[in-house]
């Protein structure tokens, strides 16, 4: 495993290990709509430590994606405080502290796979040689070596999503934000990518905040599962579930795994209103 060297111009900032990567206190976000206010987030407290893999799980409308978007400065909270790497989300975004993976790969169709992965580096003004070296290393990390010259349409959905992960990692951010990255893929591809993501996380020691609505996915991948509930969007349970660094998909059959999964399901059920 080759750890990508952080060159001097790379925007990544070293943070003290004891300082949390994400720290939210009393965070709320209310959207004003024609039908009255929508309480997307209400009094959310969350701390994500360095190197953690935290999943946000919950039914649709529970604010899990909104929370991720607040961390990414794609939404502004209406109350409470939040810091990312010790600074406000906007400052963190401006110094490119995080990589974001959307549900869809959103690759630019006129760029090759390598061209897509080097795009953030172009924007950051890295040299051509540096861009190329980093893109090759990242594509290697997601097992896409040999596809540099292909255009997105020539790759399957799973490969496109791996390319988008390589793109998010290309500038070596310490924090990786993933919004249901495998939600649009079929079960088999999803299992495969879950294993690959776990290996990637172990290799790169990134901090990951991962939004999903799949219980097995959340429990399998995470060091902590944050269970959320809608109307208003809030956190109702936080479950530690570290199954060790060398876990394989088989652990999903073990009693320990099922126990944690059960607790997550209970949490989801408790928080879910049955009136709809």
């Amino acid at each position: 495993m080759t750890v990508i060297s952080v060159s001097p111009e790379a925007p990544s900032v070293a943070t003290a290990p004891d300082r949390p990567v994400v720290e939210a206190r009393g965070l709320s976000l209310t959207f004003t709509t024609a039908d009255g206010p929508v309480y997307a987030l209400s009094d959310v407290d969350l701390t994500v430590g360095d190197g953690e893999f935290v999943s946000l799980i919950g039914p649709s409308g529970c604010g899990k994606t909104t929370l991720l978007r607040v961390i990414a400065d794609l939404e502004r909270p209406t109350g409470g405080t939040i810091t990312v790497n010790g600074v406000a989300p906007e400052a963190a975004r401006l110094r490119r502290d995080y990589g974001y993976v959307f549900q869809a790969p959103a690759l630019y169709p006129w760029r090759t796979i390598e061209g897509n992965v080097t795009l953030p580096l172009e924007i950051m003004g890295l040299s051509r040689a540096e861009r190329r070296a980093r893109a090759r290393a990242q594509l290697d990390l997601v097992n896409l070596s040999g596809f540099e010259r292909k255009f997105p349409w020539q790759l399957s959905g799973g490969m496109q999503q791996r390319a988008s992960i390589a793109r998010a990692l290309s500038f070596d951010p310490r924090l990786l934000l993933m919004d249901e990255p495998f939600g649009a893929l079929d079960e088999i591809v999803r299992d495969h990518l879950n294993e690959q993501l776990l290996k990637l996380w172990a290799k790169t020691k990134k901090t990951v905040v991962f939004v999903t609505h799949s219980i097995p996915e959340a429990v399998f991948l995470s060091t902590r599962v944050v269970v959320m509930s809608p109307r208003p969007g809030r956190i109702i349970d936080v479950i530690d579930c570290d199954f060790g660094p060398d876990r394989s998909l088989e652990i999903r059959e073990t009693p320990e795994f099922l126990k944690v999964a059960h607790r997550v399901r209970e949490g989801l059920r408790a928080g879910h209103s049955y009136d709809d």
Binding site: R93, L94, R96, Y100, F102, A106, W110, E122, M124
Partner: peptide, 24 residues
């Protein structure tokens, strides 16, 4: 999504124009 990606990389409006809007 394509536009928000540019935002996550804090691309300038000029960069968004040359690297996203124009080729699209």
């Amino acid at each position: 999504l394509q536009r928000e990606l540019m935002r996550t990389w804090s691309a300038s409006p000029a960069q968004t124009f040359w690297k996203l809007r124009l080729p699209a």
